[in-house]
């Protein structure tokens, strides 16, 4: 799964978790600092992305500021029903992410809809479909983070 990273790749992974300037040549300052050409910097970033070490490059939007509604949800799914319930839950296009976790509440998913009302309606539909309770954990406050992993 993993491959050895060069020092340059580590620097690039770390620096791309910061914010690049909104200027015509956003990689120019980074290239100067690393004593490389812009093409070399862009090429290395492209290979990190193509190898799956970086996800997409671009603007990161505040999903709620764009007008959508989001809610973390959890369900306690009996082991023998897990695959059946999973198929039903994942069939909803409103289910954006879904993780299995090692807890009595073993299915954790995020609903992404156009409105708050659609969150409640989708959760209710999943409850009807599965016969299981859906617990809603809407974000009340986000604590901002120095969002970075040291590669």
């Amino acid at each position: 799964m993993t491959r050895a990273l060069s020092d340059l790749e580590r620097i690039l992974i770390n620096r791309l978790q910061d914010d690049l300037p909104l200027v015509p040549h956003p990689f120019a300052a980074l290239a100067r600092e690393l004593d490389l050409s812009e093409e070399e910097v862009v090429g290395r970033i492209r290979s990190l992305r193509d190898d799956g070490l970086l996800t997409r490059f671009g603007p990161f939007f505040d999903a709620e500021a764009l007008g959508g509604a989001f809610c973390l949800c959890a369900m306690a799914v009996p082991a023998e029903r897990f695959e059946e319930v999973l198929t039903k839950v994942n069939a909803y296009p409103e289910v954006a992410h879904n993780y299995e976790r090692d807890h009595r509440l073993n299915m954790w998913f995020v609903l992404a809809t156009e409105s708050q009302a659609a969150i409640a309606a989708t959760a209710a539909a999943i409850e009807r479909d599965t016969g299981l309770k859906v617990l809603l954990f809407p974000k009340e406050r986000e604590f901002f983070i120095g969002f970075r992993v040291t590669a």
Binding site: D18, L22, R49, L53, F60, D62, A65
Partner: peptide
């Protein structure tokens, strides 16, 4: 605040 930053996220 609609765009938080321009960059990439690590996998």
């Amino acid at each position: 605040g609609i765009i938080r930053r321009i960059g990439a996220a690590p996998n």
